[in-house]
Design a protein around this nucleic acid. Sequence first.
DNA 1: AAGTGGTCTAGACCACGCC
DNA 2: GCGTGGTCTAGACCACTTT
Lengths: 256, 256
Amino acid sequence: MTAKKPLDRPDWWMDLPDAVDSRHYLGVRDSIAAHIHNGNLAEGACLPSERQLQTGTGAARGTIRAALFQLEAEGLIYRKERSGWYVSPPPIVYDPTRWEGFMSYVAAQGRTPKTELLDARTIAATAELAVVFGVDMGAPLYEIRRRRYIDDRAVLVETIHVDPRLTPSLLEHDLSQSLTQVLRSHYSIAVVRNRIEMAPCALTQDEAVALRLKSGLPGLLVKRISYDAQGRVVEYDLEYWRHDALKISVDIRVGN
Amino acid sequence: MTAKKPLDRPDWWMDLPDAVDSRHYLGVRDSIAAHIHNGNLAEGACLPSERQLQTGTGAARGTIRAALFQLEAEGLIYRKERSGWYVSPPPIVYDPTRWEGFMSYVAAQGRTPKTELLDARTIAATAELAVVFGVDMGAPLYEIRRRRYIDDRAVLVETIHVDPRLTPSLLEHDLSQSLTQVLRSHYSIAVVRNRIEMAPCALTQDEAVALRLKSGLPGLLVKRISYDAQGRVVEYDLEYWRHDALKISVDIRVGN
DNA sequence: AAGTGGTCTAGACCACGCC
DNA sequence: GCGTGGTCTAGACCACTTT
């Protein structure tokens, strides 16, 4: 009689520190959070379905969902569209002052980075790009779109623009590896200055689809412009991150 | 007959670029967003009430709210508990590598900073604090709680810890001003190094109340440890920001 | 085909801000 | 005391993922 009970919550579900009112969404939230913290729900694990979570609580599905949204905003869980809710892995720590690329700093934290090339082509500079690169509108630029993973979970999509005058035939190289690497080894270009901006944003259609997220979910936009020793723009990168995948850490000496 | 129509939306409401399906929450979202961008809803303005937004659309209140939550996550609007929804002011730009305090960088961006002292006292070091300051557990530390405003909107609450051995009688000074300033002018302490961490978080009861927000809303946690020339911890600061009030910008030269 | 989340409706009552 | 948002119920149907 230990047969599967597909429509019930798992057996351990009631092992809570109890004392939470699971008719209220914050109570439901606390109860799920407790299961995450005590290890019943491990990192990456799939939560019981929303309808399963209802059973026994007398709560409406809307109440359960309110709790799940809450946990999502806190970064504890995330969802795969129409598949389920999962426990979030810990965020990667990003230090904008250290200039190593994604591949190195993810690996340095014991995680597994992966890059997937989505698209690489030559485009005509838009007004905005023309300003950034100091070229005429319509001038040719390389545009590279990539998706990057940590431990096989897609965490960001990026669009990189590069000036072909600095890096002729760039697109012929392997772009699913560290671009920093390619620039250094094939073009002897070293980045000496970075301008970085980060702000919360909403993921639009394109990014959301690429990350397999629901369009409109909050994300983090990281904009980076890299310059070489001559002050030329080497790389203009727009990264759209899942909001729960990144944590910023900076260690700086104050000039003075 | 231009009397107030308290249960209707404002007259300009229908001047949309239309073509949005306002029975769906993303349509409602787009329509409100359009009003914000075209200036019908100015910065700081109060939106029509949820029930007013329903009128004429045939949408349920839940649908309207879904749209409002969406805009909130994107940082376009915020709410005051049980008072209403408001258009967010632009975020302040924070550059962790420049070491001026809150008062200076807010003012430098043409906004009006304000600091309010909530509490200042001597406490016994907890285990965590003892590690940070390299003192014994139970050793005395100053604890300062402040709330800070931009243009009269509360944007963060912070808890600062300071070692009294470095700054004896600190609590007797005016703590509603720049602490950086006080440390420099009264104790000749200069910060030469900062360690900063930032991560999304949920605002707990205390912080939420202090910011007049709903408990559990997403926020941004900024943790800062400042060191003097001798490597001593000068200040340990935990700041809880409204998630929409801050944007990060860094400009760095790469050492090498 | 079954199960999941995604969305929506149409009510209801409550706690609190504001006047 | 009125209006606001805050919460909740109890359905329903859809679009997609998964098996």
